[in-house]
Design a protein around this nucleic acid. Structure first.
Lengths: 213, 213, 213, 213
DNA sequence: GATGAATGAGCTTTCATTCAT
DNA sequence: GATGAATGAAAGCTCATTCAT
């Protein structure tokens, strides 16, 4: 048990360091040596634990994605909320999630552009489908219960929701500079992601035609 | 003159092939050998023309960005349009531009996350600032002329506009698969980008508070 | 222990082959590939063991210089000899040393002319200072004990001693040809370095004013 | 004629810049690009004028050696001096010559160790032989005229003479540091080379057994 | 299970030289 | 005669991975 725990923590340490480095520099520009050095393990360990650099990435995605998918189902299954409240909750949680896992979402975005790895593409596709299905279900239910008055295309909705978040995430330093804002990082983040939430809720409200009484 | 044209076309050929490869695989994952092979030139030519792999990328960005910035000013300076019409025109042209220069915009997106090259970061920042300034000017003018009734944050507006386009672009195959659509590519593209235009105009109309009379 | 010995012998093998090649062809004209091939190791091992080609050279100098400095102290500390006998002993040993490590001294001379490497220049300077201090001590002691009657400038003394040896070393093939001598190498070397010893002792005897009783 | 003069000066410029660079960095470490850049000519000119980098070096040596050999004969043929005076004159002139052509003598020294170029080795050998013959002639004459009482080996004599000069030249900064001398360069040089002359004359006087009456 | 040593393939860049004009 | 363009070869180095223990 001691041995296993130690091993497990080593693997998790490797994944954590790899995540940060790959998010910062890209997958190709990050060397196994660097990851091993950062994680304080022998170079051979990456191949030893994960098989290869590529499989380390796959392992990283699988691990992180599994962690992230669970919370979604909880929201949808809650009955005390109407569809618009669930929508709001989803937006809040999504943005919080991105805020707290910026490295992971950087990698996700980067991989959608560049990877040719079939397994990784499959991971990403499945991840996306889960959200599309979720939104579609929510939209239908909202229309049925007359909470929503419009039924937008769910793929365009996702593009705007996720696209805005990702692009805003990447643009954070540029926008901070544009506005000549000198706030310390945590405070600025709080404000930045808060504005993002309000902005996206406003757009989504318009898209689904939710009318405040 | 013949010699110059020939030289110029070789450099342009290298840039074109580099653009496609870097967009597909990322900068680090693209080797100088590959670019040279694709462009049909000797490996040494990349260093000869551009100095280094890194400087080739800088040269690519500079060249393409110069090409793209011109058309923007033309729209803004047209006087027979009101601000909302200019907004619509900009969205149409932006989407067309991205559609026709997907590689370049992929690279731009990718570099915003991963590069640490100061010069490149500066290029991108300037490119982004030009658009931000443009939108800000347009918003102020629209408000002044009572064409717009709201003044949204220009950075969030850009994130939604550009983020939606980029994300929708990258998600095209996934969405096609999700909808189990078997249309041939050109027809599907025509429809897909058309829907994107309508979708974004609808969002923007809401954001700026433009009221159809 | 077996592993260590094996490793150590590989590194030593690389150093030995590098020494010979660099002495023959010069540092710049000797390629890492060549050294690796001669030493029977993979090219990557040079970087693996030494860091770089330049650091291999530094390592070579440091290793060899450490080996060479030890014997000097032994002579000086011997009490049964007078100063002139120590002088003679030093000349004999120095020339023997050069004879048996011609490659190393070729490199030393070559580096004094061409290198701009700060670390290497520092190695050489320290090496030189040790000898200067040694000669100065010997001269003073000899004067005090009335073994020597003159106190020549120690730097000029070193220039003549070392300069003669180095230049004679380099000129060996030319002089052999000049004298149309066809002796086999080892016998010729024996005679050549023997003459050098007598010649330098004669000069030094004059310089320090040592009188045979 | 204008064209020729221009060409000739270009070639001489290339030789001059090549001399300095090769003396500083060594032949292999000096690139054709560098020489061309320093000389302000096109890279192709080196191959064009001299055939190759190697032949440029040959050309350099041949040119410089021809310039240097002439002055020697003048001294030897002067009849108003006895052999020792000629010896003194030679030492003075030799040291002056080296002082004023340090680059060339550095290259000579360097090539004697490292080059495998047959033609260059032949140049150097001939250059050396001329001096050896000269000294031999002088020694014989001195003995015959009872100016000298000893006949040292001419190769050892040359090794000491040239070796001391070269080594003292190269060691100048090290010795200045050793003596913690802060004199300005020109004054120190004057003193340093003056001491060298006295030192070598003293040694040579002893070697040839010249007795002051 | 874990690791330092070692490997071959590949990287970018620079080399001296030649070509086409 | 002179030169910018272009080339193949080779340079030093780093890569992800595997081997031997």
């Amino acid at each position: 048990m001691n041995g296993m725990a130690k091993t497990s923590s080593k693997q998790e340490m490797i994944l954590a360091k790899a995540e940060r480095l790959i998010a910062q520099k890209g997958f190709s520009a990050t060397s196994v040596r660097e990851i091993a050095k950062e994680a304080g393990v022998n170079i051979a360990m990456i191949s030893y634990y994960f098989g290869s650099k590529e499989k380390l990435l796959e392992s990283l995605l699988q691990t992180r994605m599994a962690e992230k998918q669970e919370y979604v189902r909880q929201i949808v299954n809650r009955t005390e909320m109407n569809e618009w409240q669930k929508f709001e909750k989803l937006i809040d949680e999504y943005i919080e999630n991105v805020k707290n896992n910026q490295s992971f979402f950087h990698i996700m975005l980067s991989l959608q552009v560049n990877t040719k790895n079939k397994r990784i593409l499959s991971f990403i596709r499945n991840f996306r489908f889960i959200y599309l299905d979720l939104f579609e279900t929510l939209l239908r239910s909202g229309i049925r219960h007359k909470v929503f008055t419009r039924h937008p295309d769910v793929t365009l909705l996702q593009s705007t929701l996720t696209g805005t978040i990702f692009y805003a995430l990447k643009s954070k330093p540029i926008y901070k500079q544009y506005k000549m804002n000198n706030q310390p990082e945590p405070e600025y983040d709080e404000w930045y992601f808060g504005e993002m939430k309000k902005h996206l809720k406003s757009i989504m409200k318009d898209l689904v035609g939710y009318e405040t009484k």
